[in-house]
Amino acid sequence: MLGIYASARRIWGLMYRHISLYRASWPRLLELAYWPTLQVCIWGFTASFFAARLGSPGMVAAGGLLGGVLLWEVALRTQMGLAMGFLEEIWSRNLGHVFVSPLRPLELVAALVGMSALRLLVGLIPAVLLAWALYAFNIFSLGLVLIPFVLNLMAMGWWVSLGVISLILRHGAGAEALAWSVLFGLTPFSAVFYPVSVLPASVRPIALALPSSHVFEGMRAAMATGAVAWDHLAWATGLNIVWLLAGGVLFAQQFRAARHRGALLSIGE
């Protein structure tokens, strides 16, 4: 019991460090909401334009576009939030202090996951409200199935981030640009705005190996028919479990390799 309390306190300690950073800086808070809000504005007006021109089919497409934008931001913000939390420690040259404390690597990841969830909430709530106010698009109309969709996209953000952090541990701060760009590279294969069937046959296996493509296929099915596509949900969850395990193993390996190379003290240099 004491061990669980101490572990929870260490996780909270690292979260408190990041929360303190945001409390002291409104530009940082603004930055969290800036891109999701901007994305909703751009795609919302685009969707409104198509809806006005095409009538009912356009309305369905518009809903799919806005739903895609909002849900894809869940994965993007989660992934960036986790990776940025780790980079903050590198930029402040604090990793040496953190890793000579009793904080376990798993607790570090748990704290970063917690912070990524908080950053997601702060960043996405204004975008969700804007979509509702400007375009009468209510993402919550998807119903309870929204919860597993969001959780699956968050999980995808986590394992992609574990991969990015592993690369930073291996290659140093030179790999930090991946923290912003890597998930954007998966957008074409994630079927965010179009079904997987649109993709050339040669790249469909890539799409089907990503949990995100199953989430978005499931989202479009839910919007079109109101039914839950359990098969897509099961695929997304199963793939996330596999990818999370792979990400965890990679992180553990690279963390140990960094301890062999002495990179935990010099990684920011």
Partner: peptide
């Protein structure tokens, strides 16, 4: 060590509180 820093954009008290949590 002078070669390892504490986060610059946290106050001294916040920094010490973080380590109070990390060391329970």
């Amino acid at each position: 060590s002078p070669y390892v820093s504490l986060p610059h954009r946290l106050t001294v008290e916040q920094n010490l509180r973080v380590y109070c949590h990390l060391y329970n």
